[in-house]
Simulated scan of single mutants.
Amino acid sequence: MEIGSRLKALRKERKETQLQVAQAIGMGDRHYQRIENDEGLPGLEIFCALAEHFGVSLDYLAGRTDRREVAR
C-alpha cells in the first residue's frame, strides 16, 4: 500500500478534509494533496508530523507493517 492510500484512509476515518489535515500539521493544502495522490513523498519532518497527527507509527504510514501502534 502506498503512503497516499494510507493517508487517505486515515483521513476519512477521522472525517477530516485534506485542508484540515494540512493546516493541522502546518503545510500547504496543495502539497498535502500531492502526497495523498502519490505525486510525491513527504520530507522527514512532514512524515513524522503526519504519523503523529494520525496517531500511527512511521512504519505503518510507510506501509512496512499493518500494526498502527506507536512503540513506546
Rank of each mutant, 00 (worst) to 15 (best):
His31Gly: 10
Leu41Gly: 04
Lys12Glu: 14
Ala51Ile: 04
Ala9Gly: 14
Ser57Arg: 04
Glu2Met: 08
Leu50Ile: 11
Lys15Met: 12
Leu7Gln: 03
Glu2His: 09
Lys12Ile: 08
Thr65Gly: 09
Leu61Ala: 02
Gln18Thr: 11
Leu10Pro: 00
Pro42Arg: 05
Pro42Asn: 06
Thr17Gly: 13
Arg34Phe: 09
Lys8Asp: 12
Leu10Asp: 09
Glu69Ser: 15
Arg68Gln: 05
Arg34Cys: 04
Gly28Val: 07
Arg67Pro: 02
Lys12Asp: 04
Arg34Thr: 03
Ala22Ile: 08
Ala24Asp: 08
Leu61Pro: 00
Leu41Ala: 15
Pro42Ile: 02
Arg68Thr: 11
Arg68Gly: 10
Arg72Gln: 13
Asp66Ser: 13
Arg6Ala: 01
Gly26Pro: 11
Ile35Met: 03
Asn37Ala: 11
Ala62Ile: 02
Arg67Asn: 14
Gln20Gly: 14
Gly43Asp: 13
Gly43Ile: 00
Leu58Val: 07
Asp38Cys: 01
Glu52Arg: 15
Ala51Pro: 02
Met27Pro: 01
Glu52Ala: 05
Val56Cys: 03
Ala24Val: 03
Ile35Phe: 07
Leu7Lys: 01
Ala24Asn: 03
Ala51Lys: 01
Ser57Phe: 08
Arg64Met: 14
Leu41Trp: 11
Thr17Arg: 14
Leu10Asn: 04
Arg67Gly: 07
Arg14Tyr: 12
Gly4Asn: 07
Leu61Gly: 00
Asp29Phe: 12
Glu16Leu: 09
Gly63Asn: 13
Glu52Tyr: 12
Lys15Leu: 06
Arg68Lys: 14
Gly43Lys: 06
Phe47Thr: 04
Arg30Ala: 12
Phe54Arg: 00
Ile46Trp: 06
Glu39Asp: 15
Met27Gly: 06
Thr65Tyr: 11
Lys8His: 04
Arg67Asp: 09
Arg6Cys: 01
Arg30Gly: 05
His31Val: 01
Gly55His: 02
Gln23Met: 02
Phe47Pro: 00
Lys12Pro: 00
Tyr60Glu: 07
Val56Tyr: 13
Arg67Met: 15
Ile35Val: 13
Leu50Gly: 01
Leu58Ser: 09
Asp38Gln: 15
Cys48Gln: 13
Arg72Ile: 08
Tyr32Cys: 03
Met27Glu: 15
Ala24Pro: 01
Ile35Asn: 00
Asp29Leu: 07
Arg34Trp: 09
Ala62Tyr: 10
Asp66Phe: 15
Thr65Ser: 10
Arg14Val: 12
